[in-house]
């Protein structure tokens, strides 16, 4: 009797330990416990995809039948345990790069990322150069930077007078 009881407790401890282990293992992946991923889990991925049937509408809000099917596909892929990147890759392979919200960073597509900053920097450079050109005479006159040279006169700059002057100008 006694021996048997002990055995049961032993099994109980073992089962408990196993349960803990399992719980620990699966705590990270909700899908493994529940095989149907929720709409929210689907939408996290769907939000990043664009269906060619309704261009420029994210998949998570697109009402067409094709897009509904895509969402169901994502759901079943999630249930199979595919990761977000794998699912996105699957869609790219099947439907082309345009399903992604942004062009993949390869080949010619780099242009989309590099050209605007390049042009902006160029614009900033030209603007700065023009500044230098415009402020040049001042620099020559005061020797050191024009800004510093003006400080003394500006300290006396009276706000009221300036305001009135501007108002007068408009009148």
């Amino acid at each position: 009797m006694n021996k048997r009881k002990l055995q049961i407790t032993n099994y109980g401890v073992l089962a408990f330990a196993l349960a803990l282990l399992l719980a620990g293992l699966f705590a990270g992946s909700a899908f493994a416990q529940d095989n149907t991923p929720t709409d929210d889990e689907v939408n996290v991925i769907a939000k990043q995809l664009y269906c060619p049937v309704c261009e420029n509408t994210p998949l998570d809000v697109c009402p067409t039948e094709a897009c509904r099917q895509w969402r169901e596909l994502i759901r079943s892929q999630l249930a199979e345990g595919m990761t977000e990147d794998q699912i996105k890759q699957y869609f790219v392979d099947n439907y082309g790069a345009r399903v992604l919200a942004e062009p993949p960073r390869t080949g010619l597509n780099w242009l989309v990322y590099l050209l605007p900053p390049a042009i902006i920097l160029l614009g900033a450079f030209f603007l700065f150069r023009s500044f230098r050109e415009w402020t040049k005479p001042k620099v020559e006159a005061t020797g050191v930077g024009g800004e510093r040279g003006e400080t003394s006169s500006l300290k006396k700059d009276d706000y009221v007078a300036r305001l009135e002057e501007e108002l007068k100008k408009r009148k």
């Binding site: 420029n56 345009r98 992604l100 942004e102 062009p103 242009l111 989309v112």
Partner: peptide
Amino acid sequence: IFPLISELFTGQKVTVGPPF
């Protein structure tokens, strides 16, 4: 404009979407 360029030169259609 870029999707037009991409389509023309590589034949690949791309989406330039909100994240960009």
